[in-house]
Design a protein around this nucleic acid. Sequence first.
DNA 1: ATGGTTGACGATCAA
Length: 257
Amino acid sequence: MVKIATWNVNSVRARAAHLQQWLGEFRPDIVLLQELKCLEEQFPRTEIEDLGYNVAILGQKTYNGVAVLSKSPIDVEQRGLPGMEDDTHARYLEVFTAGLRVASIYAPNGNPVESEKFPYKLAFLERLYEHAQGLLETEDAFVLAGDYNIIPEPIDAMNPAAWTGDALYRPESRAMYRKMLYLGLTDAIRAQHPEHGVFTFWDYQSGSWQRDNGIRIDHLLLSPQAADRLVNSGVDRTPRGWEKASDHTPAWCELAD
DNA sequence: ATGGTTGACGATCAA
């Protein structure tokens, strides 16, 4: 069994203690991190390696940044999305580890939608879609997971009406997510939790966590060969309740060997 | 109701 988790930590340096505690308690085999907000040399590598993880990092000063932690050796396959070589944002890291192809993804937020940020978001998602198409031809088991910054359906928000017009809930964003699913990818959380109220993000403002005013924007998309092995998935709300928490909490799935 | 919070950075931007 391999346990894979994704977590937007909102600064890995500010969250290093939380990350260490959570790794020790949850014991995932593979972890995909987003929003490191630091350069590779600023990443708390030793602390993570001491817990038995190999580390691959795509860092960036102040913004973005993604990483993969794995108990198995890691081969880096892609730094950045193919076809977006001019993009300076650190948003995509694809590796091969534990017999799986795995990518840590931090899709653009896209707000405000009237700005250039929204077409940038859609362009990133289109490139991700095209890359996933190519990966499917290999018939390998793979997992494309991270902060997609997309609320797929009304049941993925406590108050969907409040998100009308937001880049996370715009029809164009949701259509891109559906395109990924129509390719044949499986939403590991949704596949096992069809109910309302499975959230991964609660805003820092307005007591969103205390009121459970959350949204589901962190996703694990599985290739057919990985989905065939899916035995369990969920969201671990525990770290979101800790003092000085990230605004996201980990989502995870387990694949049979 | 246009509030409210956090992180990195440097006197503001991104989320």
